[in-house]
Write a protein that binds this DNA or RNA. Structure first.
Lengths: 122, 122
DNA sequence: TCCTTACATCGATGAACGTCGATATTGCGC
DNA sequence: GCGCAATATCGACGTTCATCGATGTAAGGA
C-alpha cells in the first residue's frame, strides 16, 4: 500500500546517515544500553588511571562473575574498553577518546561547543 | 562462592553512578541503539527546523509504516523527540537539548571541552 | 606436578525487542 | 454522516539479549 507524499512538509533529505554507519553507531549505543555496563564504566572512570581488574568490579555491581565478564567483553568488543593482562589479573581501562568520538557523532561539534559555553556562563 | 579481594588494585569506589540513574541513562542509550532510529534522528536533523511528518520518513528508511511509528514512539517516550499535531499530519521534532544532556552524561564537560579544543586546533 | 586463584566460555532459560500485516483512531472535506 | 488519508495500536513471530551455574583455561606458588 503506497503512501502518498502529500504536501505536508519538505521531503526529507535521503541518506544523511549511511546505513552502514548507522549500524556501527547503533552497536555502540546498544553497548551503552545496559545499566550494569554503565555502572562498570562509571566505576572504571572513578579509578585512578581509569582502570581496574575484574575481581573488584563484580561485588559493587551485584552481578555474578560470568555476567560481569560478559559485560566487559561487550564493552571491549565495542572498543570502549581495552584489556591488559598482568599476572593472574586482567585489567580493564576506559577509552575516553571513544566516548568523545561518540559524543561528536551525537551532536555536531559546533553546537556542542555552544552548549558547553552556555552552561559555563551560568 | 565468595570472590577474594586480593591486592590486585585499589578497590573501586562504590555507587559512583546511582542504579536509578544508570537505568535512566541505559534507557536513553537503548533508544539510540537501533540503526533505524538513528537514521530517523539524522533525517530530522537534516530538515529545516529539525522537524518532519511521518509520511516522509517511512520511504527513505525502507521500513513499514507501523515500524516507523513504533520507532518514533520509542524516541518520543525517551523525550528525544516531541510531537505536534497539525491537521491530519503529525510532526516530530528533534530535541537537541536532550542529546546535549546525554553527551554531558557520557563525558565530563571539562574533558569534552578539552577534546573539542584539541580538535579545533588541528 | 598439584592446588588455588582469576577470569573466560558454554549452555540454557526467560525476557525484551524489531518487524509487519491487520485493524483501530483521528481529522479533513464533501 | 460518509469516505478517505495519515497515523497509532494490536497481535504474532523470530531474533537478540541478560543472567547465571557449570565448566574450561591460564597463571602463580609450594
Amino acid at each position: 500500500m503506497p503512501i502518498r507524499k502529500s504536501s505536508c512538509c519538505a521531503p526529507v533529505l535521503k541518506g544523511q546517515l549511511e546505513p552502514d554507519r548507522a549500524d556501527e553507531l547503533a552497536g555502540l549505543f546498544r553497548a551503552l544500553g545496559d545499566p550494569g555496563r554503565l555502572r562498570l564504566l562509571s566505576f572504571l572512570a572513578a579509578q585512578p588511571g581509569g582502570e581496574a581488574c575484574v575481581c573488584h568490579l563484580t561485588e559493587p555491581l551485584g552481578l555474578a562473575q560470568p555476567t560481569v565478564s560478559h559485560h566487559l567483553k561487550v564493552l571491549t568488543d565495542a572498543n570502549l574498553l581495552e584489556r591488559e593482562r598482568r599476572g593472574t589479573w586482567m585489567y580493564y581501562r576506559l577509552r575516553l577518546d571513544r566516548l568523545e568520538e561518540l559524543c561528536a557523532a551525537l551532536v555536531p561539534p559546533r553546537k556542542l561547543a555552544n552548549a558547553l559555553q552556555r552552561r559555563a556562563s551560568l
